[in-house]
Nucleic acid binder design. Structure first.
Length: 897
RNA sequence: GGGCGGUUAGCUCAGUUGGUAGAGCAUCGGCCUUACAAGCCGGGGGCCACAGGUUCGACCCCUGUACCGCCCACCA
């Protein structure tokens, strides 16, 4: 940091000037690039995280910012604890999403992907990726993420593609990957199959049509209820409940399907809900998931009437060529004219939509590749919580429930952008070959012409391998040996199933160990309406705008301080602004310290024997902060850690300690100033270290100019400050409160009686006892300085002047003689108010203590504490009343004279 | 239908093992006290959703109710 060499800080903190220099510094010095085989680090514990790879298509949104912030806090903290840390960055190719984006671009040029052809289209997507992958890289970098860029990965890069093929082939050979005909979720717009969890359900107003299906023998009509009349053309049965008396006679007979005149059987199945609709269900195995299962069970024919573009096909007879929407109206109209439409009811059901493009999903029967997940899911389930712990644990149930109800995973997608399925068919003998490398000759017939399966794999297939594929698997690499399993996965709950559960399955199956020891599931950052932000809806907030306006550290600190476990964050700009205030506060505290410190590091001094009270106090509090932070971060209580830091730095270090230290600095005594300098320097130094995981830029910048540090001092490599045993300061720290209360008492009188802050008061203190008197006497300078006094008399026998405002603090009577024009009524009512407050507390406590069972059953220390408090209150009230009476009397004599 | 979470100051939210509540912003009063007006000092403001229960004692534990939100499964 050569150009930041002047050991002086500008007046306000300007993040923009500072941040970029540090990003460059960290990269140029390879600060976050661990060497797994470094003998010096052999003793260090490994700590690793793989980044949840953002989509190449998107911009980083505020949710990513939260995700990155939390991971970075953990990584930087782990480095401070002496661990060898690897954080692997990377991006996801996001099959459907990316293809959609590029296709939209092509559409703007009036072209479709088919105009380009597969090769050229994929080339086009790669170009897009190069452009936008860089965008995301810049944004991760902007957040200050301490990732190892030398190990950046992309789900479609060569190594990961190899891992994907390897996994596919092994699963196939193990019988866990199979090709089968099945009903799947089909998106007409994306023109591909989707996995069950890629379908989002939302309510929709529609109608329930009641249609009459005449029995073949003409004895009666069966009335079925449906929300999709157009699919009736593909009906192959009508199902009723086996115990439904209304339909008992119809079971086993046939009905004549209207509009087609096909005969279809009436079957009985317990699946049918007698209460719903008419209790008779039309069964269309080709176009409904439940009907598909029913059809399989009853060996029903499967007639597909809607094609993969959403139009009626040749099996739809007269309706062929119509869109499914047009077919619906025509079918309904035709039924009505035939008198077969009994009723139309208003109805609301939920309709499945594509999670990428929101188009309505059509159940569709086709040949797809599936992963048999039963055994994999079982392993994933059993590994939690013994091998992998989930935070917060409330997600356990959800995790188990999902794995319990999981169905085979449809992994083939009919798009072009993605990992091509490594399966070939021999052009000659039709043999299917599943291989890691392209086949040369057919093992059966010796021919060498093959056709590769045109489909690609689900994006989440490669994502599932991420924790080990990024470390070099299937090769046996030093990274893999050192850093697998990873320490923790940090992610939002919305991809718990898509991603986390599948990583667990694949990691356990292929590595024999779970992919991570801990999973921390953080909040979702929601928009102003509390709605989930998503790339496809476009309601995202650009964290870069916040960074630009308030600085990265402010954004990071805000996200951390609100990251309470298990609760969503609704982010607003004024919160980020208040974090900026905090950053600036620290900056100025540092400026003050630097003004008072000398060029070289002060000291050394025996901290455990620190002389003055305020030094002992701040050091003691600092130790408490340190152990608090260690505990909080170990349990992922980011908000607790950040909040404790905030309170300590602002309200203890700045509000009190810096003020207390001012007189030291001006002191004649060189020794006193020297020890103050050392403690100030020590406290600031450690504050910066504690702050660093949360605000890496600001802390680094200040660290860099702190006396005693080299010009290129790198805070990111500085260890967490060793803890000191300062338990013997605890009593001093407590007595500090007496001082603070006395000072506040004077300030309150000043404020409420409207005495100018600049006016130097004369104050008398009648101490509670000899001990308090000696104590206050010993620290009279601090009181004079912080309460802005002219003179201070500490004397148990001090005469109370006629007109004087007063307060009682820990039994000490604080008396401020008044002169000149004073608002006397204000003082009387102030004391009234004060007394009323004490009365209330006194009444509450004495009622409690009057209860015999309380005195009997409550823990002794609690009872004693209350008793002490009551005695204290009584004493304070007594003194305050006397002081008030004296004041009133003084007033009266004034007026008499 | 199943599961999860929420209800605390005007707003947005914290609250570690039960000992009657805190922050930020907002608000009121006073201050350019030479680190910081992005600041300092002081004040006001809460039957902790409601009803029961356990307990000496409940924001906290248990049961139920109301409203809000999310996830999963979906009755055609």
């Amino acid at each position: 940091m050569s150009d930041a060499a002047q050991k002086e800080l500008p007046k306000g903190y300007e993040p923009r000037d500072v941040e970029e220099r540090w990003r460059v510094f960290w990269e140029e010095n390879a600060c976050f690039t661990p060497k797994p085989e470094d003998p010096d680090k052999a003793e260090a514990a490994p700590y690793s995280i793989v980044i949840p790879p953002p989509n190449v298509t998107g911009n980083l949104h505020i949710g990513h910012a939260l995700n990155l912030t939390l991971q970075d806090i953990l990584c930087r903290h782990a480095r401070q604890l002496g661990k060898q840390v690897l954080w692997v960055p990377g991006e996801d190719h996001a099959g459907i999403a990316t293809q959609n984006v590029v296709e939209r671009r092509l559409a703007a040029e009036g072209k479709s992907r088919h105009d380009l052809g597969r090769e050229a289209f994929i080339e086009r997507v790669w170009q897009w990726k190069e452009e936008y992958g860089d965008n995301i890289r810049r944004q991760i970098r902007a957040m200050g993420a301490s990732v190892d860029w030398t190990r950046e990965r992309f789900t479609m890069d060569e190594g990961l593609s190899r891992a994907v093929r390897h996994v596919f082939v092994r699963l196939y050979n193990e019988g866990l990957m199979y090709k089968g005909r099945y009903i799947i979720n089909w998106c007409n717009r994306c023109h591909t199959a989707l996995a069950d969890d890629e379908v989002e359900h939302s309510p929709q107003k529609t109608s329930l049509w009641l249609i009459r299906y005449p029995l073949e023998d003409g004895s009666a009509d069966l009335v079925v209820a449906t929300t999709r009349p157009e699919t009736m053309l593909g009906d192959t049965a009508v199902a009723v409940h086996p115990e439904d008396a209304r339909y008992a006679r119809a079971v086993g007979k046939n009905v004549r399907l209207p509009l087609t005149n096909r005969l279809i059987p009436v079957i009985a199945d317990g699946y049918v809900d007698r209460e719903f609709g008419t209790g008779a269900l039309k069964v269309t195995p080709s176009h409904d998931h439940n009907d598909w299962h029913l059809g399989r069970k009853h060996n029903l024919e499967c007639i597909q009437v809607i094609d993969d573009k959403g139009s009626m096909n040749e099996h739809a007879g007269a309706y062929q060529g119509l869109s499914k929407e047009d077919a619906r109206s025509r079918v309904v109209a035709d039924l009505e004219s035939l008198g077969l439409l009994q009723e139309v009811r208003e109805y609301e059901n939920s309709v499945g939509r594509c999670y990428r493009c929101q188009a309505v999903i059509e159940p569709h029967v086709s040949v797809q590749w599936f992963v048999a997940v039963k055994t994999l899911a079982e392993k994933a389930k059993n590994a939690v919580p013994e091998q992998t712990r989930i935070f917060p644990a409330s997600w356990l149930k959800t995790y188990y429930a999902w794995l319990d109800s999981i169905r085979d995973w449809c992994v083939s997608r009919q798009i072009w952008w993605g990992h091509r399925i490594p399966a070939w068919t021999c052009d000659n003998c039709r043999k299917l070959l599943v291989l890691e490398s392209d086949p040369a000759t057919c093992p059966d017939c010796g021919h060498s012409a093959f056709t590769q399966d045109p489909d690609v794999l689900d994006t989440w297939f490669s994502s599932a391998l991420w924790p080990f594929s990024t470390l070099g698997w299937p090769d046996d690499t030093p990274e893999l040996r050192r850093f697998y399993p990873t320490s923790i996965l940090v992610t939002a709950f919305d991809i718990l199933f898509f991603w986390v559960a599948r990583m667990m399955m694949m990691g356990l199956h292929f590595m024999g160990q779970p992919p991570f020891l801990h999973v921390y599931i953080h909040a979702l950052v929601r928009d102003a309406q509390g709605k989930k932000m998503s790339k496809s809806t476009g309601n995202v907030i650009d964290p870069l705008a916040m960074i630009d306006k308030y600085g990265t550290d402010s954004l990071r600190f805000t996200l951390a301080v609100f990251a309470a476990m298990g609760r969503d964050i609704r982010l607003s700009e004024d919160r980020i602004e208040s974090s900026r205030h905090f950053m600036n506060k620290i900056w100025n505290a540092a400026r003050f310290a630097l003004m008072n410190l000398e060029k070289d590091a002060p000291g050394p001094l025996d901290v455990a024997a620190a002389a003055a009270l305020h030094h002992r106090w701040i050091l003691h509090r600092l130790e408490e902060l340190k152990s608090g932070q260690l505990a909080a971060l170990a349990e992922y209580r980011f908000n607790d850690a950040a909040q404790a830091l905030y309170r300590f730095v602002w309200h203890e270090f700045c509000d009190w300690y810096l003020e207390l230290v001012k007189p030291d600095m001006q002191s004649e005594s060189g020794e006193r100033a020297a020890s103050a300098r050392f403690i100030l320097w020590t406290a600031l130094r450690e504050i910066l270290i504690l702050l660093h995981p949360f605000a890496p830029f600001l802390s680094s910048e200040i660290w860099n100019v702190l006396p005693g540090n080299e010009r290129s001092a790198d805070l990111s490599s500085v260890a967490f400050p060793p803890q000191r045993d300062l338990a013997h300061f605890a009593e001093d720290a407590e007595r500090m409160e007496m001082l603070q209360e006395a000072i506040v008492a004077v300030r309150t009188i000043r404020a409420e009686l409207n005495i100018a802050p600049a006016y130097r008061l004369t104050v008398l203190i009648r101490p509670a006892d000899a001990g308090a008197g000696a104590f206050l006497e010993a620290h009279r300078q601090l009181i004079i300085s912080l309460a802005r006094l002219d003179s201070l008399t500490i004397d148990p026998a001090a005469i109370i002047p006629r007109l004087s405002a007063s307060n009682v603090a820990k039994g000490n009577e604080i008396i401020v003689p008044l002169s000149g024009a004073v608002d006397c009524a204000a003082e009387v009512s102030r004391l009234d108010k004060e007394l009323a407050k004490l009365d209330k507390e006194h009444a509450m406590l004495s009622a409690k203590l009057a209860n015999p069972s309380y005195r009997q059953k409550a823990p002794q220390d609690i009872v004693e504490r209350d008793q002490t408090r009551v005695a204290e209150l009584r004493e304070t009230q007594g003194k305050l009343r006397i002081l008030q009476e004296k004041f009133v009397e003084g007033l009266r004599r004034e007026t008499e004279n």
